[in-house]
Design a protein around this nucleic acid. Sequence first.
DNA 1: GAGTTTGAAACT
DNA 2: CAGTTTCAAACTC
Length: 718
Amino acid sequence: MDVVSPELNSLLPDEIMDTEAIEDISDSQAHGTNTQSKTTNETTVPMETDTSSNVSSAENTLVAPTSKDSSPSSSSAGNQITISVSSTTSSLPILKQSLATSTTSTKTTNSVSGTTVSTGGLKLSGPFTISAANHQIILNKVATAQASEASKSSATCHQVIKQEGQKLLVTAIGKSGSPIVLQLPNSKAPVGQTSADPKIQTPQFKVVTIGGRPELKPLVGCTTNQMTALQTQQLKAVQVTVVSVASPTSSAPPKTVTLPVNLALGQQILAVQQSTSASPVKVVSSQATAQNIKPVQSVAVGGVSGSHFKTIIPLATQPNVQQIQVPGSRFHYVRLVTATTASSTVQPSGPSTNSVQTAKPMMVSTGAVRMSVPIVPAQSVKQVAPKPLTTAVQGVSTSQTQQRLIMPATPLPQIQPNFTNLPPGTVLAPAPGGGNVGYAVVPAQYVTQLQQSPFVTLANNSSFSASSGVQTQARLPVNGVSTTESTSRPRKPCNCTKSQCLKLYCDCFANGEFCNNCNCNNCFNNLEHETERLKAIKTCLDRNPEAFKPKIGKGKEGESDRRHSKGCNCKRSGCLKNYCECYEAKIMCSSICKCIGCKNFEESPERKTLMHLADAAEVRVQQQTAAKTKLSSQISDLLMRTTPVIPTGGGRLPYTFVTKEVLEATCECLLERAKCSEQTLQPQAEAERMILEEFGHCLMSIINSAGKAKVDCASINC
DNA sequence: GAGTTTGAAACT
DNA sequence: CAGTTTCAAACTC
């Protein structure tokens, strides 16, 4: 696997670095480690990135000029990277500093251009833009759509990374929305041949893995050992790992992912493949030294024309996690699960194995094909990885870094070719094992679920240890709602009995989640039945391509912000019961609803009544809670202030607990209960019973508190 | 907790 | 596309 040079690392948005990393950059850069990259077998492929958690800076994104725009050196001999940094507003000190110290760039106040990044034998050339203001690195489309087609046969229109016979062709995403294609053909195949006719030869894609991992340990035999101390120090800062696309190795069968042509239609393909053992470049090297890196791998997939492709690089605790956000889709992030091959460059030695077991960063995994295929036609991409994510991810990572997902090795040839029908955000995880690649389709939420799923286990199998780990998932905001909230929110367990949880009847399945702690019978909505589940997903999508999209979307102009995408069809519920999907979603029915006798509209008296009742109930609950809290606090306060005289061995509780404050609080509780009964039109007898029960509760609280105080005092006296 | 009602999903 | 069946959640008792 190729690893980004320190120079390029320094150019990455600061969101992908943690504070430590940034500091490290500063430190290392201060020492002038400009020449380190040449001795480091690492190469970075710049990814289109957007970590713009800052909205204000989002508008400052600058796109490097395409070749059409006379961008410099896009066709230059593949040994250069032309970096055009245009920072209009906010300064990015770290970035600038990095640029100033680690590149040969021509620096101006707010922009840097003409950077050549050369790392070891790997060289990357091609225009891209680093926007300091927006914290973006944008790979521009090298040419226009027409030119791009022609460019496939010309290396000059690609950014080429070449190392030891391997070439990585990078067709950058441009403003026109062309997909990023990181193409690393087999080293034995000439570049021109590979790219000449994609129809004849299926393109092989390689996923670029960005991010490193803290606590990485150098692998035995990797080039890390050759790194100087300065290199090591610099690499601590940030790591961008370019993972292979096709995995041509002399010893292992290449892991090739064949992508359908239509994926290029406004959809972004991110294929990853790590370099193999045969490759002189070991991915591990930089990461192994990245002790302080908080690697992040995330890609926000933009839409077709004119949409913004953004690669979100959130902090991930482990390197082989990549996230893809597809706005508008409930599948928002992706975990790329590394697969392993029998021939792994991972040394069976203790250190490397242990590093995995202990959640140490192991980009070492070889032959892995990781591929994320955002399916949804992109809409405007506004989602970014907020900085707070960094903290969240880090927090999560510490607790779950040892979890690993064992992916079933079931090949799915019948489904594999058609990625377009998979749910958005689906992760295609190659199954570990031989040359055949099986995929586990993991909708976004699944990834998070997997962390707590019983299917997530520690892999003891050495073949898994290096690459098949499921890493801690950075949680990105989903439609403005933190996925941390959405995923941590307790979901109602399903009770499916006949659907095997593989139909949309099942809420878990419909929400793109695994069943977990459900009451379902004969459940197939789990990794153990990935084949069936994959088929079911495909079936659902065939039936309705929108099946996995949120039902509640934005309405037309002038209508409510939220409305049901299809509308309800209620007939008997008046749309005022939870049978109605609109009412359940707490939205009013809209013009597209086909309901009969609908009462779920703005001026509906029934609806207003319900709303008032609901509000009143909520207020009552709050008041009761407050009253009880007050009572408890006052009792506690009394416990602190009073020192009741406790007769030795006596059974009497001190009367001093029944103070004025306690009485008042008790009365408040009783009054609230009475009001509640009154508002709910309860019969008097029932109301009295409820009040008495409440009084009993209050008494019990007092007695318990007094008893506790007695015990405490007695123990003190003893 | 069992039985009923309901409407979305699935099927024909 | 409409009608019917299946299904699981919501609801009632």
